[in-house]
Structure formats: C-alpha cells, structure tokens
Design a protein around this nucleic acid. Structure first.
Length: 479
RNA sequence: GCUCCCAUCGUCUAGUCUGGUCUAGGACACCGCCUUUUCACGGCGGUAACAGGGGUUCGAAUCCCCUUGGGAGUACCA
C-alpha cells in the first residue's frame, strides 16, 4: 500500500511556524516513500474558521515549497477536502454509532455541565467525571426527546478500558481507562468535533501515517476508541516534539514572529526556513546541516526524530538564511536581493553588471536582506564624514593634506567624464600621498579611507572605490 | 488535582535501541589568534553539557528504579 500522509490545519489564523514544520515532515515523508501528500482543511469550528485564512494557508504552504498532491484546490479521489463539505458523512456515521449503542444523546445544559465539572474538581476527580449522566438513558426515551427537538450533543460511549499503541517517535504509549470521559462527537449545533471527523477523514481518505505535534498525543486515545467502534485499523502515528519559545512554553504569537508570512514579508529564503525547521526535532544521518528539500527527501526517515521540545531561535535561522543566500548563483542572488531594496534606492540606478558585483561582494557581510541597506551606505552616503571612529582620524594633521589632494583629483576625474574611480587610479593616488606627502602606515590608509568614503573603517577599499558612483564622490567633497 | 510525554554545552543536536572506540562530536552565539596597514569574510583555536540519587555490570551518557525539573492534555478549540 502506498504511503498517504496529510496536513490538516484549521483555518483560524495564518500558517504557523510549527504547522509549517509539521507540513514539511509530512511532505518529506510522502516524497521519500513516493506517496501522496494531502491537504485537508479542518473548518468545523464555525466561529473561528475564515476563508481568507484558508487561502492564506494554501498560499504560504506554496511559498514554503510544500505543495500538495490532493487538496481543496487541487482536488483528488478522496474529496471533498474541506470538512465543512463532508458534514453529511459525519452525521450519518454519528447516527450509526448511536444506533449501535456506541454513542448517545446528552441533554446536559451548559449550566449543569459547569456545575458537574466544579463538583468533580472539588472532589479531586477529573473534570469529565460526571459528564456521563445520560450514558444509560433508555435509547427509546432518548430518541423521543431528540425527536421532540430538545437541544443535545452526541457523546461517545467510552469503553472504559486501557489503550496502548505504538507511536513512531514516542514508542509504546499507554492511556489508563479514566483518561477521558464520554466526550462529545457532535455539537448541539449539529457540527462534528475535531476528534471525530479527524478519524472519519483519516479513515475514509485512507491515510497510512498521521504526523502531528505532540499536543495531540492525548487526543490519540479518543481517536483509537472511534477507530475501534467502527472496526477500522488505525493508521501509524508519529507525534513530533513541540516547538517552544524562550520561556520553554509552546510557541505562540507572544513569542514574536511565529507566522510563516512574517518571514516571507521579511524576505527570508523559503529554503532556509525549511532547512532550519527540518533540523528542529530531526537530524541528518551524516550530521549535514545545510541542505535543500530535494537533497534530503530521498533519505528522510521517521527514526531520527528528537523527543524533547525544541527552542525556536531566530538567530540561528538568520545564519541558515545567510548560508542559503551565499549558495545562490549570481543571477539568482541579484533577483533575490534587488527587490528587497526600497524602489527609490540609488542601487537601482546602476547597471546590471555593477549590481551583480555589488551583491556578490556584500553577500559575505549579511545574513538577511534587512542588513543590506546599512552596508550599502559606504557606497551611497554623501555625508562627508561620519561614523564614531572619524574623530580620531580627523585629528591627524596629515589627514587634511590627503583630503585636499583627493578632492582635487576627484574633481579632475569627474570633469573628464569618468563615472567611477578605478583601482589603478586609487593605487596611483595612494602612491602619490606616500611619496609626495610623505605619509605612511595607518595614517596613509586610514586617511585615504576617510577622504574617499567619509568613514574611518569599512570594507576593502579596492572593492568599495570602484563601486562608488562619481556623483556620490563629488557630493562627499562638496563638488 | 489527574493523565501522558520529555531531560547531553546558553541554544539546536550526534551518540542511547545493539553498554567499552566518548578525557562526549558537530552547528548557532560568544571569546582569542592568524590574515587583512581598517571592519568584515575566511582559516585556526577556546569557553561550555551527560539534571540528582540509587542500582545492574569488570565497565553506564547509554540498561533499571526513585527524585527533581520542564512541557502538553484534561472543551460543544484544533
């Protein structure tokens, strides 16, 4: 049987970093096994689900490079792929359980439920302890009340026994019989509940593996009960460790940028995000750390998951972005970095050859695009003298002489129509200052730097000078 | 409260199943040196971990138990 895995988000917000990681693992595993990666939208929570989130979710998944083989947009043989479009199925199956005596209508009101929960807590019992009031109500009586239109939910009749299953990452996991109570499978508004439709869909969509975050581990016992009630063999489960923030709590909005779209907006490279996320809870057999999805898909296996929760560290993500950026071809590098600069940035006025040289040089100094503009200052700032270290250099008597000489030379060159200063010219000027002005050592080089760039420190002058437009040079010297 | 899960450098992790080759390896961050007459990059090096306690064993990061700590769940959310 070929492998079928699914990613089943609920459209109640933008794609989360943790969700993206789960989707990545599903995608990788399907690819490794030549199986199918299915996207299913779990929109049974009417209040919180929004179509715009569903669209955004699909868009973000696409940006991540995690396209599905089957899904709400793409279609497939197991559709529909939106739970809101499968309601009849859940309803009839829930009714089947009621008819078989495996589930029952419950007429508890919100107030009664609250009271019973408080009572259970006060007696140091589990909150669900008294939720089974209608468990043994005569089915005929229950049917009568339902038909009379009385508000009710459908509760699953817990078989009250121990459940054990083998999780691919956790190993053998056992749940005691009082772990959960008679939980709700159909709400009073007629909508099914997650633990119910999840099972129905994984079953009907013939999923072979369910990969999800550890927060769902405890739900598995409910799902196991439902599989059993229908006489269906459950899929394999793999519960991946959680992603946590600085405070070691489950990663959420308050930990900062936790939506994929925020990284897209900040111009991170999707392959870098995926690479980093992949390594949060999974390790490469050869301890390789920089790779593309295509590279690991063939060797991705489920035996290398880490059990402990992983801390999401943006600093390390930046490093990964830098590594991937530096691997880009000159053409790709330019098309990556160019659009990240403001449209009125002087960078855009330069030739394409210049632009390629420029990003080729500055890629060594940055990890993410947001760091580029400040580095470009050395080429474009027209402020004559700036930076913290200039005061010291300005104090040197010899600096004024260099400054004056450079000004004259720049002026001459500009009048000749040159658009840039060549390395040869720069060398000639340096030699002149050395021989004629008798300046040497750091006084010479720092002086030259200050005179030409206006800063006391910065990148290699032999690279910077030929890249600096003459217009900027003139402005720096008040020409 | 109850249940489930987890525990190696500050962080992500290798090693744990199949005890010895681990005076515990790699990566991020940090520090130092070299190089660059600056800064950075790069190269080299460094600081830094088996939570604690008991067993089992000739030998334990690795197997067992307990303690402690952390997390998740306990919904008509998913």
């Amino acid at each position: 049987m070929s492998v079928r895995v699914r990613f089943a988000p609920s459209p109640t917000g933008y794609l989360h970093i943790g969700g993206a990681r789960t989707a990545l693992y599903c995608h990788l595993y399907a690819k490794a096994k030549g199986g199918s990666f299915v996207l299913r939208i779990e929109d049974t929570d009417l209040e919180r689900s929004k179509k715009e989130y569903e669209d955004a979710m699909i868009e973000d998944l696409k940006w991540c490079g995690l396209e599905n083989h089957e899904g709400p947009v793409k279609g497939g043989d197991y559709g529909p792929y939106r739970q809101s479009e499968r309601l009849d199925l859940y309803k009839s199956l829930a009714q089947q359980l009621v008819d078989e005596g495996k589930a029952y209508p419950c007429f508890l009101t919100d107030e009664e439920l609250e009271e019973l929960t408080e009572k259970a807590k006060a007696e140091k019992n589990s909150p669900h302890h008294y939720h089974d009031k209608y468990r043994d109500l005569d089915p005929a009586e229950a049917k009568k009340r339902v038909e009379a239109g009385e508000t009710h939910v459908i509760r699953f009749k817990n078989p009250r026994k121990k459940y054990t299953f083998t999780d691919i990452v956790r190993g053998e996991v056992t749940f005691p019989e009082d772990m959960v109570g008679d939980f709700v499978i159909m709400r009073s508004n007629g909508m099914p509940v997650y633990n119910f439709c999840c099972v129905i869909d994984d079953w009907k969509m013939e999923m072979t593996h369910v990969m999800r975050a550890e927060e769902h581990l405890n739900n598995t016992v409910r799902q196991l009960m439902i599989y059993e009630a229908f006489g269906v063999k459950p899929p394999e489960f793999a519960h991946c460790s959680l992603l946590v923030g600085e405070d070691r709590q489950k990663l959420s909005k308050r930990h900062g940028a936790t939506s994929v779209v925020q990284y897209k907006d900040q111009k991170y490279l999707p392959q870098a995000l995926m690479n980093y996320l992949c390594l949060l809870g999974w390790s490469h057999p050869d301890e390789k750390d920089i790779f593309d999805l295509d590279e690991i898909a063939p060797i991705f296996d489920l035996s290398r998951f880490t059990k402990a929760p992983a801390l999401y560290d943006i600093e390390k993500l930046k490093h990964f972005n830098g590594e991937h950026m530096r691997r880009l071809s000159p053409d790709d590098l330019l098309s990556y970095l160019k659009p990240t600069l403001p449209s009125d940035h002087p960078f855009h006025t330069q030739s394409e050859g210049w632009q390629k040289d420029c990003v080729g040089f500055f890629k060594e100094k940055i990890n993410i695009p947001a760091e580029l503009p400040e580095h470009l200052e050395v080429l474009f700032s027209t402020e004559p003298q700036r930076g913290e270290a200039v005061d010291e250099v300005k104090g040197w008597e010899t600096t004024a002489a260099i400054q004056e000489y450079i000004k004259t030379e720049v002026s001459k060159l500009a009048e000749s129509g040159a658009e840039f200063i060549t390395v040869d010219q720069f060398n000639d000027w340096t030699n002149h200052c050395k021989k004629e002005l008798k300046i040497k050592g750091k006084f010479l080089f720092k002086g030259m730097r200050l005179a030409l760039t206006g800063m006391a420190e910065g990148p290699d002058l032999k690279v910077v000078i030929p890249l600096t437009p003459m217009s900027v040079m003139k402005a720096r010297h008040g020409l």
